[in-house]
Amino acid sequence: MGTAVTAPSINRPWRRATGWLIALAAFFYLSYSVSNWLASQRGDVPTIVFAWEHGIPFLAWTIIPYLGTHALFALSFYVCRNRVELDSHAKRLLTAQVVAVVCFIAFPLRVSFARPQTTAEFGLLFDALGILDMPFNQAPSLHIATTVILFDLYSRTLPRWTLPVTIVCALLVGASVLTTYQHHFIDMPTGVLLGLLSVWMWPPEGGNRLASALGMPSRFYK
Rank of each mutant, 00 (worst) to 15 (best):
G2M: 13
A7R: 15
R12Y: 05
P13Y: 04
A17V: 12
L21E: 09
S35R: 00
D44M: 08
P46G: 08
I48H: 11
F50T: 08
W52G: 05
I56R: 00
P57V: 09
F58V: 00
F58H: 08
A60E: 14
A60F: 07
W61I: 12
W61S: 12
I63L: 02
Y66D: 04
L67T: 10
L67Q: 13
G68K: 10
F73Y: 15
A74S: 09
L75V: 14
R81P: 10
E85S: 03
S88T: 08
S88A: 15
H89K: 11
L93G: 02
T95L: 15
V99Y: 05
A100C: 12
I105C: 11
I105H: 01
F107L: 14
V111H: 07
S112H: 08
S112D: 14
F122Q: 01
G123F: 09
D127Q: 14
L129G: 12
G130F: 05
F136W: 12
F136C: 03
Q138Y: 09
I144Y: 02
T147E: 06
V148E: 02
L153H: 10
S155F: 04
P164R: 03
V168H: 04
L171H: 00
G174I: 05
D187S: 10
T190R: 07
L197K: 03
M201E: 07
G206H: 11
G206I: 12
A213G: 00
A213Y: 02
G215F: 04
S218F: 05
Y221T: 10
K222Q: 15
